[in-house]
Design a protein around this nucleic acid. Structure first.
Length: 645
RNA sequence: GCCUGUGUAGCUCAGUUGGCCAGAGCAGCUGAUUUGUAAUCAGCUGGCCGGGGGUUCGAAUCCCUCCACAGGCUCCA
């Protein structure tokens, strides 16, 4: 007999040879129909195979990530089977389940594959699915596996790295694949498939390796789920910052100016300025001092910082002067300039911490394939600051920066965020500069600060900047997509390289520690993320046009001006729609341009010195006395943007 | 940079077995309308069909090449 412990803690007995699927059947028919995969003693098992002994069993359905994983993993097999049928001679490599679906990397061996081929692949996949072929695992010897894949160098490479005894194949129908396991019982559960895109991907992610074709797909147990998923994608497209940015007249690009160089239109510039003012105010309260430094710097500056050695060849190339031997770089970062500011006079421990803040525009030559709207550009403005402090002050300063970042997220309504502590690669230290000792000090300062701030965070090794570890903040937008925004980085290396010093209480010279930080990250990326987060409906304090005044007809224009003047006195941003259009039209246009408040003014309002208020989205607030309305909006704004302290 | 795809008016898009002067809606302009909670009517303007080269009697349509954009890979100070 087998003793099986279920997640609710109950223990049930089963005959030897019982599978996870049998267990599901014993619980309910519904569960048996819906179970997709199983975890046994924390290991993924095939749900149709006998359980190996006593233990804890968890059954997974579509509602759990494990269930989806098995579903998509199995779908990858199905796609591979289909591709082999359609394109004989192709070489399969790897095909994992991913967050939304699955992919398979294939060496097409001369075949060509584009979007036009997707429907026929989808059709054939569904045909294969309907055969309800069972997925069956079997163990193979290393030699047998190598023999099977003698024409496939990719699979052989994978097998070479495995031990005899741990190599398994998975069969379904006539198709066989090297596989670790975790499948659906049979292909028939896959009811809807969609090939999403074809893309190039290097074998093992290394650009020196051959480029394979990566086919992305997604599949579902119900056709309606696919429709829903495609609708969700459509929604995401609607709030794409590139689309909204154009519609709202915030920014633009010009081929003539150059790739990846965003230009801010008046409304966008106004928005950005407002964000900057907001942060400047908070930074002032937090003891930062604004500084301004030039857009270019002598190449030697970046040789000192180490950036030139690391990024020089892949950057915008140096600017030459009429004088021989002088070379300047467009600044790719602000820190070397700020280090020189620090050095402009002798510093005492009494001066520290020093916090230099600058909205500094920097230029980086990103690879052309990497450019994307405002989130990935070649010229952008960082809300940068560099904090110089004593080693003793480090942790405290770090915590204060965390507070500032969280204040910004809260004000801008990013409720869900996660923090990522990025540390050095555990084994390979060659890509980093600086001593092991300094790295360890910096890493533990971050870990402690984060622990004391009680942040929800994860640790990633190998994600650190080359000069120091960092804490990155990721936010989720309204559609659940993750974006990296703010960053806080500890740096012992630049102070070393720039020979920064302060005189301590002991009258000796000491080296300060630096913190680089940018809560928004870059103004460009932040505006992009904010746009997508709020679907273009900015909070009232931030939006370029807060109030649309819509006179019913020309007769009320004078009153409309009176309303406008009064709102101006309250520091509210209103405009009059003075076109000879019907009210319905004016409302529609204000709705489309996402103005939060619409004031309809006609005879009634003029007589009672009031306004008829309609909110963006359609809510009718009825008539409100003019001054009262202004006060209400002002109050609302004050709530939205509470002060930092 | 590499792979795959896309590029027609300010915007969204029709138009490709190669064939009259390349179309629509919206926006813009002009005029009429003076309007009460998501589009008033009419007229007009606007395009080297991404750039260059080629095939052809003839190219938005076929071929080559460059550029930009999109998705992905690689990268991200």
């Amino acid at each position: 007999m087998l003793k099986i412990t279920l997640p609710d803690g109950s223990v049930k007995e089963f005959d030897e040879g019982t599978s996870a699927l049998d267990v599901a059947k014993s619980i309910s028919h519904g569960l048996a129909r819906n179970v997709l995969s199983a975890t046994f003693n924390e290991q993924t098992v095939e749900i149709t195979e006998p359980l190996p002994g006593d233990g804890a069993l968890t059954l997974h359905t579509w509602d759990s990530p494990e269930g989806k994983k098995a579903f998509w993993h199995s779908s990858a097999h199905l796609m591979a089977q289909t591709l082999e049928q359609l394109y004989p001679g192709i070489k399969l490599t790897i095909g994992p389940a991913i967050e939304n679906g699955f992919y398979y990397d294939i060496d097409l061996n001369g075949h060509n594959l584009g979007e036009g081929d997707f429907p026929k692949i989808e059709k054939k996949m569904l045909e294969n699915a309907r055969a309800k072929s069972a997925f069956e695992m079997r163990e193979v010897s290393k030699q047998a596996a190598l023999d099977f894949y003698q024409d496939n160098p990719y699979k052989t490479e994978l097998i070479e790295n495995l031990q005899d005894g741990e190599i398994t194949f998975c069969d379904h129908a006539e198709f066989t694949d090297l596989c670790r396991g975790g499948h659906l019982p049979h292909t028939g559960l896959i009811k809807a498939v969609k090939i999403m895109s074809a893309a190039g991907a290097y074998w093992r992610g290394d650009e020196n390796n051959p480029q394979l074709t990566r086919l992305y797909g997604i599949s579902f147990p119900k056709a309606s789920m696919l429709t829903e998923y495609l609708e969700l994608l459509e929604q995401a497209k609607q709030r794409d910052h590139r689309k909204l940015g154009k519609e709202l007249g915030l920014f633009t690009f010009s081929q003539k100016v150059g790739q990846g160089l965003p230009m801010w239109l008046p409304k966008g510039a106004e928005l950005r300025e407002r964000l900057e003012q907001f942060l400047k105010k908070a930074q002032k309260a937090a003891g930062y001092e604004p500084v301004i430094t030039p857009h270019i710097g002598n190449k030697k500056l970046y040789e000192t910082s180490g950036h030139y050695a690391k990024y020089g060849k892949d950057s915008f190339q140096p600017i030459n002067t009429p004088e021989e031997g002088e070379e300047y770089l467009l600044k790719p970062m602000n820190c070397p300039h700020h280090c020189e500011l620090y050095k402009s006079e002798p510093r005492s421990y009494r001066d520290l911490p020093i916090r230099f803040a600058e909205f500094g525009t920097v230029y980086r030559y990103e690879q052309s394939g990497e450019l994307h709207g405002l989130t990935r550009v070649r010229g952008f403005t960082q809300d940068d600051a560099h904090l110089f402090c004593t080693p003793d002050q480090l942790k405290d300063e770090f915590k204060k920066v965390i507070d500032l970042v969280l204040y910004i997220f809260k004000t801008l309504d990013f409720q869900e965020y996660t923090a990522q502590v990025s540390l050095r690669d555990k084994e390979d230290h060659s890509k980093y500069i600086g001593s092991d000792e300094n790295w360890e000090k910096a890493e533990s300062a971050i870990k402690e600060a984060v622990a004391e701030k009680d942040l929800n965070y994860k640790v990633e090794y190998g994600e650190a900047a080359f000069y120091g570890p960092k804490l990155d903040f990721m936010v989720k937008d309204a559609l659940g997509r993750q974006w990296q925004l703010g960053t806080i980085q500890v740096d012992y290396n630049l102070p070393e390289r720039f020979e920064l010093e302060y005189t301590g209480a002991d009258n000796e010279k000491h080296r300060p520690v630096m913190i680089h930080r940018a809560p928004f990250g870059s103004m460009e990326r932040f505006v992009a993320v904010l746009l997508e987060h709020c679907a273009g409906n900015f909070p009232t304090w931030l939006t370029p046009k807060q109030i649309a005044i819509l006179p019913i007809s020309e007769k009320y224009m004078q009153y409309a001006h009176k309303v406008s003047d009064l709102l101006k006195n309250y520091d509210l941003r209103a405009f009059i729609d003075n076109r000879a259009e019907k009210t319905g039209r004016k409302i529609r246009d204000a709705e489309v341009s996402k103005v939060p408040y619409m004031l309809i003014v006609g005879e009634k309002e003029q007589e009672t010195n009031s306004v008829s208020v309609r909110l963006h989205g359609g809510e009718d607030k009825g008539s409100i006395p003019l001054e009262e309305f202004a006060k209400q909006v002002q109050q609302k704004i004050d709530q939205q943007i509470a002060a930092f302290n």
